[in-house]
Amino acid sequence: MRVNGEEVCLEKPLTLAAYLAAKQFDCRMVAVERNGEIVPKADYEKVALQEEDILELVRFVGGG
Results as ranks from 00 to 15, higher is better:
residue 58 V to P: 14
residue 39 V to A: 05
residue 57 L to R: 08
residue 55 L to H: 07
residue 7 E to A: 12
residue 60 F to W: 03
residue 40 P to V: 14
residue 28 R to S: 05
residue 19 Y to T: 02
residue 3 V to R: 07
residue 7 E to I: 08
residue 46 K to N: 12
residue 3 V to P: 08
residue 9 C to S: 14
residue 10 L to F: 01
residue 25 F to D: 04
residue 19 Y to K: 04
residue 11 E to L: 10
residue 23 K to A: 12
residue 13 P to S: 13
residue 24 Q to I: 02
residue 37 E to N: 05
residue 20 L to Y: 03
residue 14 L to V: 10
residue 64 G to L: 10
residue 54 I to D: 15
residue 11 E to C: 01
residue 19 Y to S: 04
residue 29 M to T: 10
residue 46 K to H: 05
residue 8 V to A: 10
residue 6 E to S: 12
residue 3 V to K: 06
residue 49 L to Q: 09
residue 15 T to L: 04
residue 62 G to S: 11
residue 17 A to F: 13
residue 50 Q to F: 01
residue 37 E to P: 00
residue 30 V to W: 11
residue 9 C to K: 15
residue 20 L to W: 00
residue 51 E to S: 06
residue 58 V to C: 15
residue 33 E to H: 00
residue 44 Y to I: 14
residue 1 M to H: 01
residue 17 A to S: 02
residue 55 L to D: 05
residue 43 D to Y: 12
residue 60 F to A: 14
residue 26 D to W: 05
residue 40 P to H: 00
residue 59 R to D: 00
residue 57 L to H: 07
residue 53 D to K: 08
residue 55 L to N: 02
residue 48 A to E: 04
residue 5 G to A: 06
residue 56 E to Q: 14
residue 34 R to V: 13
residue 9 C to R: 15
residue 37 E to L: 03
residue 18 A to S: 09
residue 59 R to E: 12
residue 46 K to L: 06
residue 21 A to S: 10
residue 27 C to V: 15
residue 1 M to D: 09
residue 16 L to C: 02
residue 35 N to C: 11
residue 11 E to Y: 14
residue 51 E to T: 13
residue 52 E to G: 10
residue 47 V to Q: 02
residue 21 A to R: 15
residue 60 F to V: 15
residue 42 A to G: 02
residue 20 L to I: 10
residue 53 D to V: 09
residue 59 R to P: 00
residue 63 G to H: 07
residue 28 R to L: 14
residue 47 V to W: 09
residue 27 C to I: 11
residue 10 L to W: 00
residue 47 V to L: 07
residue 33 E to N: 08
residue 50 Q to P: 03
residue 43 D to V: 07
residue 53 D to C: 04
residue 63 G to P: 02
residue 59 R to I: 01
residue 41 K to F: 02
residue 40 P to A: 13
residue 52 E to K: 07
residue 8 V to W: 12
